[in-house]
């Protein structure tokens, strides 16, 4: 879309959308939201950028070789975190008994593996939605 107002408005609201998406991901265990909703909000910002500035600059924001690494890395990180529990003699993806630092209820850095896994999954969902959109747009 070749419109000056759309481009300037997009540039103005883009950081706020991304900050909100990161907030929803990081506070996933304290407030409504989580990996999937926060990742979708973050992906919406890049989709908006692509709509306003065109496909080529949008792909420069998240190129294919980086997004594929984020996707595989996110899911492998999840499995690795789960294997810590197995290595210590508990079942797959054990949280409290495996000795993850639990912290104080209501803090951002608490609840053991939950924020770590949520962050990895959020990045993965973001990269998946953006890649889907870019792949569908390339086809035209």
């Amino acid at each position: 879309m070749d419109d000056l107002f759309v481009r300037i408005t997009t540039r103005m609201i883009l950081p706020f959308i991304q900050i909100y998406g990161l907030y929803v991901i990081i506070h996933g265990h304290l407030s409504p939201g989580g990996a999937f909703s926060g990742g979708s909000i973050f992906a919406a910002s890049i989709v908006l950028y692509t709509l306003a500035y065109g496909l080529k600059p949008g792909q420069k924001r998240l190129p294919h070789h980086i997004s594929s690494k984020i996707e595989t890395g996110g899911i492998l990180f999840f499995i690795l975190i789960g294997l810590i529990g197995v290595a210590l003699g508990y079942t797959f993806l054990t949280n409290q008994e495996a000795g993850f630092p639990m912290g104080e209820i209501g803090r951002v850095l608490s609840a053991g593996l939950i924020p770590v896994v949520t962050f990895a999954l959020g990045l993965k969902v973001m990269s998946t939605v953006v890649t889907l959109f870019h792949t569908m747009m390339e086809e035209e």
């Binding site: 996933g28 265990h29 304290l30 407030s31 989580g34 209820i105 608490s110 053991g112 939950i114 949520t118």
Partner: peptide, 9 residues
């Protein structure tokens, strides 16, 4: 789980 959001827990 020490997570107040039960759905995330």
């Amino acid at each position: 789980t020490h997570a107040p959001n039960l759905i995330t827990a």
